[in-house]
Design a protein around this nucleic acid. Structure first.
Lengths: 215, 215
DNA sequence: AAGATTGTGCGAGAGGGTATCACCGAGCGC
DNA sequence: GCGCTCGGTGATACCCTCTCGCACAATCTT
């Protein structure tokens, strides 16, 4: 993290404390999950009183939203870095897997059980589409020898995109398949649904990736 | 639900109240998610005092565990019914999708973000393996013209199964692919990650299923 | 039928959580 | 240097889980 060269010392202190709060929040999430995040506990660990944190975050929801935003941002940056380094789909897949394994709770903050009342702010879905754009670019770079499945025709018929021109149907299909298959393996692995089955999830991930490349 | 032919009227009353509590719990989960489940709120809605519920469930954890158990049981029964009705893999897939869409929160109780401290009781993982067994049976019934991927060799080398003889590697591989791919589409759809992309998730699900059948 | 027993619900209360409030004190901009 | 804004605190209200002792009613036993 580069030194935020903010104007006043107060602002600098403020951003610093905010960052420290988020750090403790991540630790707490790693220890007991996002639902057990407690502002009070964070305050106590920082040697502050409970209500003091409300000077920095409007409430628990805002803090969690910020963490979610950071998680999305981190994933998008990871993908962009990999793409800038010339990674193809396999490279992106490995970057995704490494990112997920590095902090499973961060992964679940992005792709885990949604909270019914919660609606992600605008910029979060924007960051999500950044991530999707990287995958789409990698897919568009591939020859489209796919036999034009009925799904592609459907996409062609219903294409509507948040902003900008919609991607070609085969590339979108490929990107969706990439995304959903890898997420399928990763999320079940991280949730521990493969334990006791006696195989290495990494190899199942690799097998799915191979199948994606051949197809 | 068949009338539980319990002996004493008291036992009958007890099971009835327990069932009613669970019903209200499901409603509350549907409204605000599992993390917001409140014994107090359930008690108030049932016209009882807070502590009264502790006569029926040892605590919040036990209630949630019971709900999770019911969810697993419901999924396993759905699969078994479909299999008994002669469903092939496609039939199982549609049964799974229908089950998931009927109550997304139930799906996330099974396959959603895990709670760090929580460990599923023995019988829950047993029910989970019942579900897996149905998929495996359907996979074993298919001709294995797969080209013996390296993953299959790995499974052959490391086969160890909870109980009973381990399944043949190609069938297990097929079952895992079936499971992970459909879960990948379903979980992202239910979590709302496809909203705003302008395509019908059902068709993506169908496309993945087609690919599974061809392969 | 009457007593003993067991199950059931209740109020009180401990302990912890979110969030708001008025109130200080210290550092900052002028 | 002065005023003002910002950061921190204790008090407080309200919610939650969960425990305890007590009262009441239904059941079982004699």
């Amino acid at each position: 993290m580069p030194e935020a060269h903010t104007r006043t010392p107060r602002e600098r202190y403020r951003t610093q404390v905010r960052a420290e709060i988020k750090e403790h929040a991540w630790e707490q999430i790693a220890a007991a999950g996002a639902s057990a995040l407690s502002l009070n506990a964070i305050a106590k660990r920082m040697g502050m009183s409970g209500p003091a944190l409300y000077r920095y975050f409007a409430g628990r929801d805002e803090l969690i939203t910020e963490l979610i935003r950071d998680a999305y941002r981190s994933l998008a940056d990871t993908f962009k870095e990999a793409a800038d380094a010339g990674a193809d789909l396999a490279g992106l897949a490995h970057a995704l897997r490494a990112w997920a394994l590095a902090d499973p709770h961060r992964y679940f903050l992005v792709y885990g059980t949604p909270v019914p009342g919660y609606h992600a702010p605008e910029d979060v879905s924007e960051i999500a589409s950044e991530t999707m754009a990287v995958i789409l670019d990698a897919c568009a770079a591939l020859p489209s020898d796919a036999p034009a499945a009925p799904f592609d025709a459907h996409v062609d018929a219903h294409r509507q995109w948040a902003d900008g021109p919609p991607p070609p149907a085969p590339a979108l299909h490929r990107a969706l398949v990439f995304w959903t298959r890898l997420h399928g393996v990763l999320s079940l692995e991280l949730a521990g649904h493969f334990t006791g089955m006696g195989f290495d999830p990494a190899l199942l991930f690799a097998a799915e990736l191979d199948d994606l490349s051949e197809h």
